[in-house]
Structures are given as C-alpha cells and as structure tokens.
C-alpha cells in the first residue's frame, strides 16, 4: 500500500468516526431542498406540499422552473412552481434537489479547494450523465445511478476542507504539513464509503446511500445494479481524462474490461456514449 493510501485510510477512519459522532462539520445544504427531499421520502406525498416548501427559496423556484422548461422540448413554458413540479414528476424533482445539494458541496471559499472542486464536480457530472444513460438503456434504476454519480465523490471536498482545517491548526503549532500534491492524492484515495456516510447523514434516500456504498467493487451477482453502472461510468470517465489527480491507467483499463463483460456493453457502443462527454458535462454545469 502506498503511503498516500495509508494516510488516506487512517484519515478515512477518523472522518467516518466523526461523521457518525456528528462532530464533523458537513456543508450545510439548502434548507428548502433538504426539507423537500425529506417530504419526497413519503411515496404518497402531494406535490403541493413540496411546492410550498420550495416556494420559500427564490433560488429553488428559479431552478425548478428552469428544469421544468428544459424537460419537455417544445412544450409551452411553465411559470409557477406548481406547474413546474407537475411537469417534472417526483423522480426528476428528487434528482434536481440532490443535484442542488451536491453542487453546494463542491464549492469552497478556499482557492485551493475550489480549483480541485471544479474539476471534481465536472468529473461527478460526467459520471452521473454516463451512469444514467448506461443504466437507462439497460433498464436499471437510471435516476438512482445519476444521483449516485453526482454524489460518489462528495467526500472529497469534505475531507479536503477537514485537511485544510487540520493544516491551519498544524501551522499554528509549527507542525510540518504535507506537500500540496500529496494532499490531493490523499483526498483522491478517500473511498466511497465516506461519501455514503455523508449521504446518510444528510438523510438522503437509503437506496442512494446503499448504491454509493456499493460503488467500491463491482457486484457480479447483481449485474444490472445501479452501483455497477456508476462504478463502470467512473472508470470510463477517468479513462477519458475527466478527473483531478493521477489515475492508475492499468487498473482503470481492467475495470472497463470487466465492466464491459459484466454489463454486456460493446466497445463501439461505449465509444458513442462517451463521445463528447466532457462537453456535455460542461454544458450541464454551465446551465446550473
């Protein structure tokens, strides 16, 4: 095991313990979004109740209307949040809210973290888009794959912020701190189980938490699971170079080969699906 991986493992243990104990300061999510997500856990929820919650936050109203108007091509524009929610439907609303929450985490006032966060967010959006498309074309849970793709690396900015805070304390005590490159590598080694713990802390749907937790390994006993699609998409996106930090090219190539057999996807189909992926992700981000 490399020293970075060793540090990351130790750090992960500390961070997980703190998340569980509630002593790690996690980014505060938009209150309206989290309340709406909470309401949406009830399968019989009325969209009117969700609308009342989102209506309190002008930003959420704007985002909902924009998403609703982009959702159906050629449809007459909607102008109220009620109309917007009706057009989007529960699945897409949940996806939108998760996206809003995730986006918030990948923003930092610290310029060093912010730079890394921008790349990580682009990576996450690309993974989400690809995982959703792959899952949808195979009849798997596309929306879960999309949300898990967005959130699979959500631990990284959180751990980065934690490291920054630790660095601040270390500097005050004149303790030697790690080099910036090591810092990025350590953050990159943090596993998806921390992201799953954060999602659980945010009380996101259990299916989403479990999917994020399962991304670490292909589950060959459930070939069409959403987690497999996210893991596969993650490897493909890294292979496309849409990533921050170093990539073990051999391991990624092996994951892609295993994933292709596991999910039964042809090489030429993959080429089509990954074509222009970075631009699609960037376009998606610029629409936020």
């Amino acid at each position: 095991m490399s020293s970075d991986a060793h540090v990351a493992q130790e750090l992960e243990r500390v961070v997980l313990a703190r998340i569980e104990a509630g002593s790690l300061s996690l980014p505060v999510l938009p209150a309206a979004a989290t309340s709406a997500l909470s309401l949406l856990r009830d399968p019989d929820v009325s969209l009117r109740a969700v609308s009342a919650v989102l209506d309190r936050d002008p930003m959420m109203v704007m985002l909902t209307l924009r998403a609703a108007n982009a959702a159906v091509l050629g449809a007459s524009p909607v102008s109220t949040i009620d109309q917007g929610l009706t057009r989007l439907g529960v699945v897409k609303i949940r996806s939108l809210l998760t996206e809003v929450c995730a986006r918030r985490v990948f923003q930092s006032r610290d310029p060093r973290i912010q730079r890394a966060c921008e790349g990580l967010w682009e990576h996450s959006v690309a993974v989400a888009i690809l995982a959703r498309d792959l899952a949808a074309l195979s009849g798997s849970e596309a929306e879960v794959a999309y949300m898990a793709g967005l959130l699979h690396d959500v631990a990284k900015p959180v751990v980065a912020a934690y490291l920054l805070e630790t660095e601040r304390v270390a500097t005050m005590r004149n303790v030697r701190w790690m080099h910036a490159d090591t810092w990025i590598e350590v953050v990159n080694e943090v596993s998806h189980s921390v992201s799953a713990a954060i999602a659980q802390r945010w009380e996101l749907p259990e299916v989403l938490v479990q999917t994020i937790r399962s991304i670490g390994e292909f589950d060959i006993s459930r070939r069409n699971s959403a987690g497999n699609y996210v893991r596969f998409a993650n490897a493909l996106v890294k292979q496309q170079g849409i990533y921050v930090g170093t990539v073990d090219a051999d391991a990624v190539a092996a994951l892609v080969m295993v994933g292709r057999s596991l999910l039964g996807i042809d090489e030429e189909v993959l080429q089509r699906m990954t074509a222009d992926l970075q631009n699609r992700a960037r376009k998606r981000i610029s629409n936020d």
Binding site: L73, V91, A136, L137, M273
Partner: peptide, 10 residues
C-alpha cells in the same frame, strides 16, 4: 431517464 441524443445514437 435517458438523453435523447444518446438513445438516438444507440
């Protein structure tokens, strides 16, 4: 649940 352009490509 699926990007129209992507589906069209397939």
């Amino acid at each position: 649940d699926v990007d129209s352009a992507s589906l069209l490509g397939q």
